[in-house]
Amino acid sequence: MFAILYVLVIAEPDDGTGGGWRTTNFGSALDDPGGFLQVLLDALTFAGLLFIVASGFSLIFGLMRVVNMAHGSFYLLAGYIAYEVQQSMTGEGFSIPGSEVNTWEWVFPMIVAAACVALLGLIVQQLLLSWNQGEDLRQALITIAVSVIIADQVIAHFPRTGVFEVGGGNAVSMTWPGWTERFVDLRLWGVQYSLARLVMLALGVVVGILLYLWLYRTKTGMVIRAGVDDRQMTSALGINIQKTFAIAFVVGAALAGVGAVVGSSQGNIASGQDTQWLLNSLIVVIIGGMGSLLGAAAGSLLYALVLTFSASYLPIIGTECCTNYSIVITFALLAIVLAFRPQGLFGRAG
């Protein structure tokens, strides 16, 4: 069943390359393998970023059954915090040339931003969520309220430097460290590819490996997995499950922060991206299955493939068609996956 589904979903973007109305941004994979590779790499690198953000969302849900609707707001806040920190470190103002940024001036803002949202996550969890465990819907509503407040406050106070007026949630962007600002020759069909995007993919893989090691090779990870399977039994064994919940929430929120730094370096950070990233996280975990690391990876890959390929390979008829229909393909992906597996690809039933 999974195989059929996999083929279906993978085959979908390929349609545009072969037949159909034939006019696409790129030629078919056979005629234009370079273009195909380019799009494939775009998809894979975007999947890396998706995974960083969505794995945090999935971790929180998997352990605590809390749908953290404030995940996107955490992302937004972390992006702006990191931007401010980088601005004050380099003192260059609005647009910083990459050559002026060294690795530390990129990593330190990330640490600060991730720590800030992790602390915020801890406060939210301890103050608002720890005492009503098990009331799914109420907790979802609470996090929705929190997300509304955070998003509004972020827009009211950020960005602070490099703009005419404080606040407003205007688009600003972080700068990658200078050494990533070049293109790598892949020696394959003459494709030159952005190193920064490859770094993005590498970061996604690193986060994935670290999460795997943490969850499957440490005692804390063991407790967390036990908590995912059977919360009551775990706490009956004398394990402080509340402490484990707090740790998971902190890590999950921090991952939103790390993702925000990567995302705002590659693109930008602006008001409205909280919704965008909540949607991204939701789609990834709905496709992949809740609380599963593998599911988050598979969901990120599928979603990124569909999004990138449909944006590149949908036929072009005039100026208004049809690449802007890629959102419909996303819905189709969701519908197909859910039709066969309501709990997502790697989710467990029930």
């Binding site: 979802a140 709905i286 859910l338």
Partner: peptide, 27 residues
Amino acid sequence: RSLGIYFLMLTLTYAVIANYFFGQVTQ
């Protein structure tokens, strides 16, 4: 076939997709 919190998330996804659809599809 989705229950409880899954249903909420899925319908939220519909909402956002509809929003982007009408925002992006200029026709």
